[in-house]
């Protein structure tokens, strides 16, 4: 079977849960995770797919370095804290700036709506409007509810399936 390599870029604000998500994907221990200063990368194989996932630190000061990783991105996964409504505008603004980047033009976006285990988590339509996703017309976008903590919604099988509408396979 031919192995299809997919380059996935994992971005989002600090404390969104990017690294926890990445570790869950690789079935690693998630009990001692500290804010990412640089980046983490994991490669996961699944049914003829090789997913190379890059997780870049999300703190404000290091966000300008995100652009060093844009090249050849197949899918952008943007992680948000679904319960932190106060930051929807900020995270939406950050995402809007990403989508304006030439190197990411047309790249499909998956919004990982993390922390859905919290009772106060916002539903998909509120996230879509909060992040201004409904004004996007030039690419596919999709919201995936998940909980990086419990591992729900982050299975490899699912990532593969989500890559399909994004134009792979």
């Amino acid at each position: 079977m031919i192995s299809l390599e997919v380059r996935i870029l994992l971005l989002g604000l600090d404390n969104a849960g990017k690294t926890t998500l990445l570790k869950q994907l690789a079935s690693e221990d998630i009990s001692h995770i500290t804010p990412t200063q640089g980046f983490n990368i994991k490669s996961v194989q699944s049914q003829g797919f090789k997913l190379n996932v890059w997780d870049i630190g999300g703190q404000r000061k290091i966000r300008p370095y995100w652009r060093n990783y844009f090249e050849n991105t197949d899918i952008l996964i943007y992680v948000i804290d679904s319960a932190d409504r106060k930051r929807f505008e900020e995270t939406g603004q950050e995402l809007a700036e990403l989508l304006d980047e030439e190197k990411l033009s047309g790249v499909p976006v998956l919004i990982f709506a993390n922390k859905q285990d919290l009772l106060t988590a916002a539903p998909a339509s509120e996230i879509a409007e909060g992040l201004n996703l409904h004004t996007i017309r030039d690419r596919v976008w999709q919201i995936q509810s998940c909980s990086a903590l419990s591992g729900e919604g982050v299975q490899v099988r699912l990532w593969r399936r989500l890559a399909v509408p994004a134009g792979h396979l």
Binding site: L133, W141, Q142, Q144, P165
Partner: peptide, 11 residues
């Protein structure tokens, strides 16, 4: 066949 639920937008 084998379509995942759309929670978003495609065209």
């Amino acid at each position: 066949e084998d379509v995942a639920p759309t929670v978003g937008f495609s065209k």
